[in-house]
């Protein structure tokens, strides 16, 4: 009797275990990338850079970047802390991609149009990576584009020396090769997880 039960039970258990193993392998194969940022499942076209100018003096054209992964950041060249840190990490992440990094275009939109000339923007960004491009525009134009990316900025009162800071949202925003806004990264994201997410965007 016990032998009959064993003869039935053992193959059944082996089959269930094998089924579970197959399932695990299948799930691992098709498992989605574990994003370090907040990812969107639906394809939502990234807002255009209407009215902005790049640091070479040309009208900014996000649509022309289709086929590349685009990272958008809103910051300013006099930013004392968060901007240089975030840009440094982004530069490291893109550098770690090797040749594939050429397919990633980072734009920083200046939230300080009063001080950030296009020349100054370009010079500042080249310190991080010579592929980074700055975008500028008047305050209202930048505010409209910033709002569409979920970004605010607000000029703070100057100190005794006349220096002022600009409070701003410091998230990085990732756009996939098809021009869809795909992921939002917190400003404190480290280079390694950012690189991993960029690799996923590159496909």
């Amino acid at each position: 009797m016990a032998t009959r039960i064993l003869r039935t039970l053992v193959p059944m258990l082996v089959a269930v275990a094998a089924g579970a193993l197959v399932l695990v392998l299948v799930v691992r194969e098709v498992a989605p990338h574990s994003w370090s940022g907040t990812a969107f499942a639906t394809a939502t076209p990234a807002p255009p850079f209407t009215g902005l100018t790049d640091d070479a003096g040309n009208p900014a054209d996000l649509a022309a970047q289709e086929g590349k992964v685009v990272v958008v950041y809103f910051g300013y060249t006099s930013c004392p802390d968060v901007c240089p840190l975030t840009l440094s990490r982004a530069a490291r992440a893109i550098d770690a991609l090797g040749d594939r990094g050429d397919d990633v275009q980072l734009y920083m939109v200046s939230v300080d149009p009063a001080r950030d000339t296009l020349d100054r923007l370009g010079e500042y960004l080249r310190h991080f990576d010579d592929r980074f491009v700055g975008l500028g525009g008047d305050v209202d134009t930048v505010a409209d584009v910033a709002a569409s990316y979920g970004v605010f900025f607000e000029v703070q009162p100057p100190d005794d020396t006349g220096f002022y800071e600009v409070d701003h949202t410091a998230t990085l925003l990732g756009i996939d090769r098809d021009g869809n806004l795909k992921v939002i990264w917190d400003p404190d994201i480290e280079a390694d997880p950012l690189q991993s997410d960029l690799e996923e965007l590159l496909g």
Partner: peptide, 27 residues
Amino acid sequence: GVIGGAALAFAILQPIKVLPRIRVAPG
């Protein structure tokens, strides 16, 4: 066994429902 495992996985995972991430809210 495979079907049983898949059914078990579906029974566990199916109840997870999330609100969609529609788009980024304006700044």
